[in-house]
Design a protein around this nucleic acid. Structure first.
Lengths: 188, 188
DNA sequence: ACTAATCCCGACCTTGCAGGTCGGATATAG
DNA sequence: CTATATCCGACCTGCAAGGTCGGGATTAGT
């Protein structure tokens, strides 16, 4: 496709064209960049928490992400009530509540929609019923299990668990979550 | 699609052309059809277990899936040693070991590759090291948790859990897995 | 008042690759 | 020798992920 040789493009400014690292998984179950970037965005907002609103330009620079694209994600998060925006000069986004009060499940649902490895196993009842072949479909218990496992892991972490930078001195025994929510299954 | 006159095909059986239901999830974390079809394939093979090899044509009919595509998946499963093939007339595929001995984690890894919601959280050490930004990347513990949750759920189920058809009389208390695996989080 | 920084938002664009299909070679049973 | 299989590489293709663009509305400084 694209008839012309790729020779010309590289001349001007490849820096982030050629090497924007892609982190989203390539194998079994993958999140999209929405999820990836969105979480990173939230983490930055978590770091700026307490200070006033942080602009997307600022964050885009810090995380090296396309600003225009972050806008899309930010709006999704805003509509979900996770962040609040203030417009105009010196405006930007800030968290709607303290980081420890924001479950990652909420974040990812806001970014990517219902948690559904298969539509017959959606946590949103509206989409779940689309699966007719309930007969001889024993398979779906697998997807449900997986869904619950993911949801559980996501529910069990808050933004506060991701915010802190690496602190060498402090001993970092357990994540801050006080909830006694089973992390479930760390493979031995 | 199908550049040559489609006149012949439709004459016989269009029914599944217009409506091939798509079951793979649309939101957060989704498996591809490889995973979906592949598992269904394995389940059928599980049902035929003990009987000789089952042909793909047979299974394609039973599950209403494109035969030619199943071939690809079957070869992957064969290379992973999960199924064995016998060629020639009356050939086909059969499970390499009893269903109760086949963990779903193996199946999905064979079909879709390493379990890695994000490449920095791959369970395959070879791919895992690609993530340089280890500094200030606290985010990755999230993906690791998710990965472990998924892997755990998959590891905790065997093909035997999926094979049985619906038996109305038999009381179906727990799946055969002895592990006490927390289901966790069905939202109220 | 004007300017610069922002968010807001719809329209647009492009490319990779999931999700197949095809055709032939090879093996084996009856 | 024929029908039925797997095997396997080459090919095709729609479409959504992953952005970009340009303008409008708001607000803080000066």
């Amino acid at each position: 496709m694209q008839q012309s040789a790729p020779s010309r493009l590289e001349a001007t400014r490849i820096d982030h064209l050629s090497t924007r690292p892609a982190f989203h998984g390539s194998g079994t179950v993958s999140f999209s960049t929405k999820g990836e970037y969105g979480v990173r965005l939230m983490v930055q907002l978590g770091r700026h928490y307490g200070t006033g609103p942080a602009s997307l330009a600022e964050i885009a620079a810090e995380e090296d992400l396309p600003r225009a694209y972050l806008e899309q994600l930010a709006m999704g998060l805003r509509d979900a009530g996770l962040v609040v925006s203030t417009r105009g000069a010196h405006g930007g986004y800030e968290l709607g509540r303290p980081p420890s009060d924001i479950r990652m499940s909420e974040v990812l649902r806001a970014l990517e929609g219902p948690i559904a490895p298969m539509i017959c196993a959606s946590d949103d009842p509206e989409h779940a019923t689309l699966c007719d072949r309930t007969s001889n479909c024993t398979v779906n218990i697998l997807w449900v299990r997986v869904r619950d496992a993911i949801a559980g892991a996501l529910e069990g972490m808050t933004l506060a668990d991701l915010v802190p930078l690496r602190l060498p001195p402090m001993d970092l025994a357990a994540p801050t979550t006080p909830k006694t929510l089973q992390g479930a299954v760390t493979r031995p």
